[in-house]
């Protein structure tokens, strides 16, 4: 518990995490608002079902930044003034059990991502409801999808952390994961080449959020979430194995 508190306090004191939070809050809500306002006059009921959720799928960049920064900040050298020190040496001195440290880190990332996604989902769907006024789709039946957004963000943040555990440097995982969140993602292009690509973590996980995926493979949302979770678990296991064995 104390480890978890320490990890949360480290996360909360990182400016990048707050920037990520602001991005994750503003990008989906503002773009969903623009999108919803532009379709107000037309058949909003039919078109508006995915408004907000699609944008929340892109807002996952906040979870990516969170997951990457949580790990990469431990390995960033702090410059000549502090003898090129890295935070990880202090962290492991304070928490010598690497397994415990890693569990606390993962827990803190998951918790922060869950809070971020819940706030972002509320803000985005609120903006859509505000823009569409009475034409807004009823929110009551969308609760499972909202949960899907939270699960997607949390799993993505953990995926980012797992990759950063391996690279120890934030730029590569950031570049790869953000590129792959773009409107035409690399995995989406791959799924045109081989149906197997539909089982990649982001393609599978996106089923929890949107039904409009043009792919040859049909997958219910729960299965998509499970496939993504399996990926994350596998990558975390590799990341943990490396972290437990490699010199800090």
């Amino acid at each position: 518990m104390r480890l978890l508190r320490a990890e949360l306090s480290k996360l909360v004191s990182l400016p990048s995490v707050w920037t990520a939070f602001a991005v994750g809050l503003l990008v989906p809500s503002v773009i969903a608002y623009l999108n919803a306002s532009s379709m107000r006059g037309r058949n909003a009921q039919a078109a508006g079902l995915d408004v907000g959720f699609e944008e929340l799928g892109f807002g996952v960049i906040a979870a990516i930044i969170l997951g990457v920064v949580a790990v990469s900040s431990e390995y960033a050298t702090e410059g000549e003034e502090s003898a090129g020190g890295r935070q990880i040496t202090a962290s492991l001195t304070a928490a010598p059990s690497r397994g415990g440290f890693l569990l606390a880190k993962i827990g803190a990332v998951a918790l922060a991502a869950a809070v971020m996604s819940a706030v972002a989902t509320a803000a985005t769907l609120g903006a859509v409801a505000f823009a569409l006024a009475d034409a807004a789709p009823p929110m009551g039946e969308e609760v499972p999808r909202m949960l899907g957004v939270v699960v997607y963000w949390v799993l993505t943040a953990l995926l980012a952390s797992a990759i950063t555990l391996l690279t120890r440097n934030g730029i590569v995982p950031l570049a790869v994961l953000i590129l792959n969140t773009s409107v035409v993602s690399v995995t989406f292009l791959l799924s045109k080449v081989t149906p197997l690509a539909s089982y990649l973590p982001d393609m599978a996980g996106a089923r929890m959020i949107t039904s409009r995926i043009h792919s040859s493979v049909e997958m219910p949302p729960v299965v998509g979430g499970l496939v993504m979770a399996a990926w994350v678990a596998a990558l975390l296991a590799v990341g943990a194995a490396v972290f437990l064995r490699r010199d800090a």
Binding site: P15, S16, T19, A20, V23, V27, I61, I65, V68, V69, S72, A76, G170, I171, L174, A175, I178, L179
Partner: peptide
């Protein structure tokens, strides 16, 4: 590096 890359790629 990390904040700059995140902002620009974002």
């Amino acid at each position: 590096a990390v904040p700059a890359v995140a902002a620009l790629l974002g």
